[in-house]
Design a protein around this nucleic acid. Sequence first.
DNA 1: CTGAAAGCGCTAACAT
DNA 2: ATGTTAGCGCTTTCAG
Lengths: 360, 360
Amino acid sequence: METPRTPATLADVAERAGVSRQTVSNAINNPDLLRPDTLSRVRAVIAELGYTPNQAARQLRTRSSRLIGLRLGPAQEFTANMAMDRFVRSLVEAAGQVGHQVLLFSGGPVAEGERPDPLAGYDDLVRSTAVDAFVVTDTYLGNPQTIGLTRRGAPFVAFGRPWDDPHAAHPWVDVDGAAGVRAATEHVHRRGHRRIAWIGWPPGSPIGDDRRAGWHRAMSEHGLSTAGLEAAVEDTVDAGRSAAAALLDDTGGGSGGGSGGGSGEGAPTAFVCASDTLAVGVLAELDARGLAVGGSAADGMGVVGFDDSQVAQVLGLTSVRQPLEQVAVALVEALTALLGSTTVEPSGVLLTPTLAVRRT
Amino acid sequence: METPRTPATLADVAERAGVSRQTVSNAINNPDLLRPDTLSRVRAVIAELGYTPNQAARQLRTRSSRLIGLRLGPAQEFTANMAMDRFVRSLVEAAGQVGHQVLLFSGGPVAEGERPDPLAGYDDLVRSTAVDAFVVTDTYLGNPQTIGLTRRGAPFVAFGRPWDDPHAAHPWVDVDGAAGVRAATEHVHRRGHRRIAWIGWPPGSPIGDDRRAGWHRAMSEHGLSTAGLEAAVEDTVDAGRSAAAALLDDTGGGSGGGSGGGSGEGAPTAFVCASDTLAVGVLAELDARGLAVGGSAADGMGVVGFDDSQVAQVLGLTSVRQPLEQVAVALVEALTALLGSTTVEPSGVLLTPTLAVRRT
DNA sequence: CTGAAAGCGCTAACAT
DNA sequence: ATGTTAGCGCTTTCAG
């Protein structure tokens, strides 16, 4: 209706409603304290005036901004980007549910040829009491910058396990990559594949090793050999393609029509990959060789990627999908627990991905 | 070093430096007013104590939060998602450069089967003075929710042209889709293609129409006919594929080896698409027909997408790339101008996309 | 150039 | 159940 130059204040509402400022404050924060009729009267005026508590004043008084800080690092690799988008959306939504908002900040421009300071940007926010807590997403850097944060008295919860310290004293939420890859392996196994290859990353990265373990475990459980079925390459399409080619050639066969996937020796008939990027490489190689893809083992090769990226969705690539919505909810839960009570037992939550089954 | 329970305040610094609070404040906000030696002494203490002004107090006093609100709507279509990620990153970075941060908020959960309220979420932020301004990204909805914002006295700048009102009284930044598509068309033309098809969306969407215009103009300028070279379909891979098939079949030819792209009648030898999604469909159809892709017109078909999505990058698809980094910078510039001066002449900025040239 | 006073809008404690 | 008082930490007058 009206367009007041300056937003209504508590005092405005109080005067108009014929009560004191405190009563209005209570109407908002402790409605139970008011008599029903007073409450409704105050509420009417609040609505009429379009009053919303001044955020700064409230924050100054309560020392709570209802803001969650999330640092956006420099652009990550392909797949991480997409995941990040979905994650951020989910986090904003989940935080919104409990009355929080998400404050994005950047780690600052990384100086030429310099290692980015993993803590840059956090400090100011902590000291200026601009945010109540942080969601830290780059623990996978292996860098427990977490240490820096705890010492700084900044509440935070991590998306990602503290790989190097299983007993870390902070809450975290992570996705069970091994379980995801295992499900992927089971999937192609159910379709009749027995020679199931793994195309992963070079050993040493916790996430990569974890995912590989899922494949290895699944194979073992089915009594399948993994010999000659493994490649460790960097995360590019070309590398994935080369790896697939090498695996297909290695044990002979595979150049013609794919001899029908026996359970013994021989070229792989299915590929489980550590990323969609690698899987795209595999698809390219199979396509170049004229090998059919999808269906049961008799119909064509099996290919599964990881992250359910845009690429997977467009190409019809079956892929492991991280439950980022659940991750966000769990993070927010942990955060509210953290902010609510003084005694916080550090808890870890491990969520299981799903498999987005498509053509391949 | 130390870990004070509570962050240092202005008073702490003042006492330790042997000056008044005001002097410390000046040291931060008006360094010129201090004598050099006083300044350096105060600065030393500030550094020593790790002092950072309390954000809430400052905001309460100055009525400026140095926060820019950005609403994250519900997940968009494929390509928008990817673009959003890159855009948000760029915006955070650009805003950071001028000392602002980005506050994400959600439009609220859209009730089942209900049209999302395009203004939901903005109101509270405005009235609670939580943000200084907004960046509005969904003007392409054709919905000038902008109106609502202006009336509300909320400064904002739009990413996206006010299509339905060329003289809108707010600053905006947009990407010249027509120019991008034109560049794409020129690109395949330079490679020797003459029968260049356009696969776009059904008429009626400003963005789609604009992009199509770029193709049409480029064709006209080269004196090329566009007859029988156009398809308007929904934005899916399958639709793109069908459209390509239809165009290839329509004027005969094309099933064998592609007869070498004359300039007269005949099937298209190149496809410029309104989206990467459609282009992927084209690639699939060409692949199925055994038609080569890339190189000069003599070598293979030309295909260009739009948005330089992850998919394009992975598939080696040439694509029009929106300069989102520049968009972010321009938005922030417009915003600071808006916030700085009282007299703001509404300005529009139209940026030209680049062409990410790849295999196709 | 530096200091003292006032108050932004709100809520936690205490009155009533 | 409602009103009063005080003060969060900062910056904008205004005096010295």
